[in-house]
Amino acid sequence: MSNVISAKNLTLAYDNGRKEIIKNASFNIKKGDFVFITGPSGSGKSTLLKSLYGQLKPKEGNLVVGGRDLANISSRQLQELRTHMGIIFQDYKLINEWTVAKNVVLPLMIAGYSLDVQETQAHRLLKHVKLSEHADKYPLELSGGEQQRVGVARALAKNPVVILADEPTGNLDDYSSNVIWDLMENACQQLETTVLVVTHKIPTIFSLPYRHFIIESKGVYEVH
């Protein structure tokens, strides 16, 4: 299996390179892998995830995602790369002025799909996350768990190569969390999507084989 993500001697830093968060990290993630990244608060879990979707450029080393080296990527190439990613946030990051259906098809809208296709896909995706009856509602009319399901549906909209999730169940109760884990397991299993989840705690109900990385003292280590 080919690597979807590959890091070699990766160093990430804020404050114009002065504040190093991750240093000399090397790891490979293959197509279809389900990866948990854990670590103490402030260890750099979210920073690593940000660098994977190009919000933070590596200070040193190589970080290749979907065949693109993020250390030397143009904004146009980054834009294109992001259209192959599904990103899920702890705070959902839905567009509150848009309906649930419109939020879900944002990646399709960006890719220039016709309104008919968008409508069909919105219906299919909302059915998949069991929110069909909420299609015309606005995000703020939904509970936190429902909003995160919208976020998952949006991440799945364009059958992404990789799903990056930052504490996707951080704000949810156990029931809602289990629903989200189910959806992400299904995506990985059925679509062979690579899934990377940053979380402070690996869910106990998780049934799929997974890989586990810990970030500690600026290093990224795989737990076997």
């Binding site: 979707y53 919000q55 980054l78 834009q79 294109e80 790369l81 992001r82 259209t83 990613m85 990103i87 990051k93 839905l94 567009i95 002025e97 944002l106 990646p107 809208m109 960006i110 949006r154």
Partner: peptide
Amino acid sequence: RERMQVMEIFGAPLML
């Protein structure tokens, strides 16, 4: 800004 940021993260071009 939030809407524009979300769109940017999902790869929306500047015009969109």
